[in-house]
């Protein structure tokens, strides 16, 4: 037990030292750089803790009201997959970095790609729901 405490103490101390090195590196980039970094960091936290979390709570609440019970688990899987992958793809879906002088950058039809992924997810969710429904209400929530 004491050796575990010592081990945890060493890891904790290493974490503090590594984190302080990072903070020092960040400060070295100047105050304006620090201010803009904090703006984006706090923006990221609020974007998640307020916007994304509220949207997720709303979607889950709507699902609980509207979906039959056999569709809940498969729909939740569909939400996890499509929701997170869509977030990951925002920079390419929005084509924000597109440049007229470089057609080799962002050179796919990302909207079509998203529709294909969403279609596959939707088909999967419906198929699993139908199977779960046929198996009867006793098996709901057993797998996902």
């Amino acid at each position: 037990m004491t050796s575990e405490l010592v081990g945890r103490g060493v890891v904790l101390l290493a974490g503090v030292v590594i984190g302080l090195f990072g903070l020092l590196s960040l400060l070295r980039l100047g105050l304006s750089n620090l201010a803009w970094t904090l703006v984006w960091m706090v923006g990221g936290i609020l974007g998640h803790d307020v916007v994304l979390s509220a949207a997720t709570l709303g979607l889950v609440a709507a699902g609980a009201l509207l979906l039959p019970s056999s569709a809940r688990a498969p729909s939740a899987v569909g939400l996890v997959v499509l929701g997170t992958v869509t977030l990951m793809a925002v920079p390419v879906l929005g084509r924000f970095g597109e440049r007229p002088d470089n057609p080799t950058l962002l050179d796919r039809s990302y909207g079509v790609g998203w529709l294909v992924v969403a279609g596959i997810v939707a088909v999967g969710v419906i198929a699993v729901t139908v199977v779960a429904h046929r198996r009867g209400p006793g098996s709901e929530g057993e797998d996902g």
Binding site: A14, G15, G22, N33, T37
Partner: peptide, 20 residues
């Protein structure tokens, strides 16, 4: 520079989190 510095900060905080 910022992605590099925040990487150290994040890994440091991750180690603290694991220890706790």
């Amino acid at each position: 520079g910022t992605h590099y510095a925040v990487a150290w900060i994040t890994i440091g905080a991750l180690l603290v989190h694991i220890a706790v």
